[in-house]
Design a protein around this nucleic acid. Structure first.
Length: 613
RNA sequence: GCCGACGUAGCACAGUGGUAGUGCAAUCGAUUCGUAAUCGAUAGGUCACGAGUUCGAGUCUCGUCGUCGGCUCCA
């Protein structure tokens, strides 16, 4: 534990001390340090609100001022259990009711492990430690918000109140933290998305359904063109598939009814519905019969793989054809829980930059490497270096994974070996695999520190078997191909959301919705004519360019262009016209002075074509 | 989905039971300017939606929808 973590963990104990002074009946569960501070989970009939914070913080200050030492005591299991029974753990004094969460935690500590309690002042808690020496070592703290959490993270357990706070060595450090947080919030893609009119979510359209406005659509289109070019280099074939497919397809793949609760409900045709209704079929019956496969219907596609599988399977394949790489910007729909929806990063309809590679077993490793190199090209072009790599493996204790364990072993080994070739540290995480296979994920954090999975590469021995895919090998016999699912962006929505925050809305030239704005200093016909010629020339070369036609002052025109984060500005007055120049200004870099207009335009065209950062 | 907070003009916000407000944006008019906001005027609202309490509700109560923060989930 780092010093900061010790401070925060100790602050959690002081928080509990303070809460108990006000509400002695409080029952505490867990109170660890976290990335940005600490929390303590508490069960209490009184609902703690931010209005209570001042009072709790007062009590915390008193405890810190008292400068009690944190005292570590090793005790026997039986003594600990007895203390918990008397309500003495996470408490100031013995109580009528046992410390029930502490009792539960104690019972789950393996035999033979040392059990310790920590004391500060009157407060005693079951705790492995470590802590700071004295309560006075906490230089600065603040309660931040209150939320709720299920006990042990299990939604079948009761919900506890989770009080969040943060603590630092001193006030200066804490103020720095809050300033940084304020700055981070300014980059929030939801805020920038509205300010820059990049996208819109309209409640009459539906939760989690994105309307891409013109400016956001430009960014998305540029990203698609970028990746499309890379795919051609790597020998992919573009395909298009519909947004809905018959239920049977997803029954074969295993997505229905297994994932029914995270899908939009099936579409049943009108005649079937009318027939069932005249038979007096209830909704529950209908649902059961659809699930049982007795009634056919269509599903809004939750993923693209089954359709790509059918394209692969639409003709006989030889080992000479492999690998077959089918790519599509495929839009899928998932019924995410309403509380999970978030701007562009968690939505109900999204477009994956999807592809499925069908290959022989020998081709798996090189193909995974090809996919990984694509992801890295994408991330490095965009200057995104702050990500982590996660190898998702099956959870040995779960039965949600389908297929032969031997194949799982092969697939997991392939992923692990491929991840090693990235010169980036990665973590192996059991339980993070897809139900059909292990995967390599690229994960980034948003401005609020929440992690989002972007690029992913998944190895799948199972769906080809479920769909009975085959190819003729060099031995003349039939073989089952292996499938690789991969999406370097993950989804256009989430990636764009993360990208907005990455650039704080200041996109590089090639991605900028408005690349160049020409600002005439006055409306002298000579100046306007010159400006219009520049606009026409740039547009002719595919540059997104506008002339400011407002009657505003030059200063106002510049201010507006800067606020709208227009990448490049040409300020043009009589002096420029006479010299064949433009006064170049780049967003965030200020006035760069007069330059020859043809040279500047040529530089811009090149910078766009080479996707210069 | 669960717990909590919130929902007032395009945006940011004020309005603690008694006539719906401010700034920016918008529109109109004037201004023609050399690197971050020229001046003036006008317009814009079923205070999310629905019910209730009250002589009277943006304000209090309940329900619905939505947003935000967590939790759970994320093929």
């Amino acid at each position: 534990m780092t010093e900061l973590e010790r401070i925060r963990h100790s602050a959690a104990h002081i928080l509990a001390t303070a809460i108990l002074r006000v509400w002695p009946e409080a029952q505490f569960a867990a109170g660890p340090p976290v990335d940005t501070g600490f929390y303590y989970d508490v069960d209490l009939p009184h609902r703690i609100t931010p209005e209570d914070f001042a009072r709790i913080e007062e009590e915390m200050k008193t405890e810190i001022k008292a400068n009690h030492p944190f005292e570590r005591v090793e005790i026997s299991r039986s003594d600990a259990l007895a203390m918990a029974e008397r309500g003495e753990l996470a408490s100031l004094a013995p109580r009528d009711t046992p410390s029930r969460f502490k009792l539960d935690i104690l019972q789950n500590i393996p035999e033979g492990e040392t059990i310790t309690i920590y004391r500060n002042g009157e407060f005693t808690d079951l705790c492995a430690g470590p802590h700071v020496m004295r309560t006075g070592n906490i230089g600065a703290f603040k309660l931040t918000h209150v939320a709720s959490a299920y006990y042990k993270g299990d939604e079948n357990n009761p919900q506890l109140q989770r009080i969040y706070g943060t603590a630092f060595k001193n006030k200066t450090e804490m103020e720095k933290h809050f300033t940084m947080l304020e700055e981070a919030k300014k980059r929030d893609h939801r805020k920038i998305g509205r300010e820059q009119q990049l996208f819109h979510i309209d409640e009459s359209v539906g939760q989690g359904l994105i309307l891409w406005t013109p400016k956001g659509s430009i960014i998305r289109q540029e990203l698609q063109d970028f990746i499309g070019g890379e795919l051609r280099k790597q020998g992919y074939s573009q395909v298009f598939t519909p947004h809905i497919g018959r239920l049977g397809l997803y029954q074969t793949s295993g997505h229905f009814p297994y994932y029914a609760e995270s899908q939009f409900p099936p579409l049943i045709d009108r005649e079937t519905l009318a027939g069932l209704s005249s038979e007096g079929c209830s909704c529950a019956e209908l649902s059961n019969r659809v699930t049982a496969g007795e009634i056919d219907g269509y599903l809004l596609k939750p993923m693209n793989c089954p359709m790509h599988i059918k394209i692969f399977d639409s003709q006989p394949r030889s080992y000479r054809d492999l690998p077959v790489r089918l790519a599509e910007f495929g839009t899928v729909y998932r019924w995410e829980q309403s509380g999970e929806l978030n701007g562009l990063t968690r939505v109900r309809g999204f477009t994956q930059d999807d592809a499925h590679l069908f290959c022989t077993e020998e081709q798996v490793s090189p193909e995974i490497l090809g996919c990984l190199s694509l992801v890295r090209t994408v991330l490095s072009t965009l200057g995104m270096t702050d990500y982590r790599v996660r190898v998702g493996l099956r959870d040995p204790d779960s039965n949600k994974y389908t297929g032969d364990p031997a194949n799982w072993d092969k697939a997991e080994t392939a992923c692990r070996e491929a991840a090693k070739t990235l010169d980036v540290p990665f973590t192996e995480e059991p339980g993070e695999a897809a139900f059909y296979g292990p995967k390599i994920d690229f994960v980034v954090k948003d401005v609020l520190g929440r992690e989002w999975q972007l690029g992913t590469v998944q190895v799948d021995y199972n769906l080809p078997i479920r769909f009975g895919l085959k190819y003729v090998g060099s031995d003349g016999k039939s073989h089952v191909p292996v499938m690789i699912h991969r999406a370097p962006f993950g989804s256009m929505e989430r990636f764009t959301g993360v990208l907005i925050e990455h650039f704080a809305g200041n996109f590089p030239l090639w991605l900028s919705p408005e690349q160049v704005r020409v600002l005439p200093i006055n409306d002298d016909p000579m100046v306007i004519e010159y400006c219009d010629a520049i606009v026409a020339s740039l547009r002719g070369q595919g540059v997104r360019c506008e002339r400011d036609t407002s009657p505003d002052s030059v200063n106002a025109k510049i201010a507006k262009a800067e606020q709208q984060k227009v990448h490049t500005m040409f300020v043009v007055g009589k002096r420029d016209v006479e010299a064949g120049n433009v006064s170049l200004r780049i967003h965030g870099k200020g006035n760069l002075g007069a330059k020859n207009k043809d040279e500047v335009m040529a530089e811009i065209v090149t910078a766009i074509r080479t996707r210069q950062a």
